[in-house]
């Protein structure tokens, strides 16, 4: 298998073809340690993240799951004093290395935050914002991508008549779907979601969850959530974090019905955390 991949590389295939050819895993984490100054927030975790899967990261606050998530598209670079050791392999490339172009990386590994954060611009401009930076200027192309990504984010019908109104006029749930839409518009391979529905009401939450399940056809999704039901509803694999350690990582069904570690069961059943 590995030799097969290597042969493909030597044949100078495009990244797209290579991605399609690559099996199962989109990311491989090896002995990842993350520090904030002296303090270690993530203690040497290793895991494979499945392609076209929804992977849920659960655990009590401060367990390192968001820190881990933010390291995948190098958002931790913005925090003074944060540094990571170990490897996160993406197409066999360690994306934690210093010579990674983080701007290009973030185009492929997009992120949606806990609090909806649309730019104070129109709905249309929110989506075209990053596309224009990526060099897309033609209006017809932009129009098409805007419609396509809003369709995918299940927001098109609600906003198609007011694309040029301020994004801040949308409800919280709509804003969050807009943030997902503008991430999709970049055509990433991985989407990181940091508690995307914790600030939303149950109905918006349900819409966002449906959307996530829908999106895994095209994208690999990693989601941090505090909501156990959410994790069990939408994810294929679940990783349980505690105090910076990866305690258990398995199929979601197994984790929620028959976890192999005592701590996991205690957390899931609400006995601590």
């Amino acid at each position: 298998m590995v030799t097969a991949i290597k042969e493909r590389i030597t044949l100078d295939v495009t990244a797209q073809e290579y991605r399609e050819f690559q099996p199962e895993h989109i990311l491989t984490v090896k002995n990842l340690e993350i520090f904030y100054g002296e303090k270690r927030a993530v203690n040497g975790i290793s895991m494979d993240i499945g392609k076209n899967n929804v992977t849920a990261l659960i655990g009590p606050s401060g367990c390192g799951k968001s820190t881990f998530l933010r390291s995948i598209n190098r958002m931790n670079d913005l925090i003074p004093g944060a540094r990571a050791e170990g490897e996160i392999l993406y197409e066999d490339l360690n994306i934690l290395s210093d010579d990674i172009n983080v701007v290009a990386l973030r185009k492929e590994i997009g992120m949606v935050f806990q609090k909806p954060n649309p730019f104070p611009k129109s709905i249309y401009e929110n989506i075209t914002h990053a596309l224009k930076f990526a060099g897309m200027k033609k209006k017809s192309v932009l129009d098409e991508i805007v419609e396509e990504s809003l369709q995918k984010a299940a927001l098109w019908d609600e906003v198609k008549d007011r694309l040029h109104k301020s994004a801040l006029s949308l409800s919280g749930g709509q804003q969050q779907r807009l943030c997902i839409a503008r991430t999709i518009a970049m055509k990433p391979t991985v989407i990181l979601l940091d508690e995307p529905s914790s600030a939303l009401d149950p109905i918006s939450n349900a819409k966002v969850e449906d959307l996530i399940v829908d999106l895994k056809k095209d994208y690999s999704i990693i989601i941090v959530t505090h909501n156990m039901q959410q994790a069990s509803r939408i994810s294929d694999k679940t990783a349980f974090f505690l105090s910076g350690d990866l305690i258990e990582y398995d199929d979601t069904e197994k984790i929620f019905t028959n976890p192999s570690v005592q701590k996991t069961e205690e957390y899931i059943s609400g006995r601590f955390g």
Binding site: R106, N117, A130
Partner: peptide, 14 residues
């Protein structure tokens, strides 16, 4: 708010 900054950077803006 910091989330504006992060939102844009996370989309691959410089």
């Amino acid at each position: 708010p910091n989330h504006l900054r992060e939102g844009s950077l996370a989309l691959g803006a410089t």
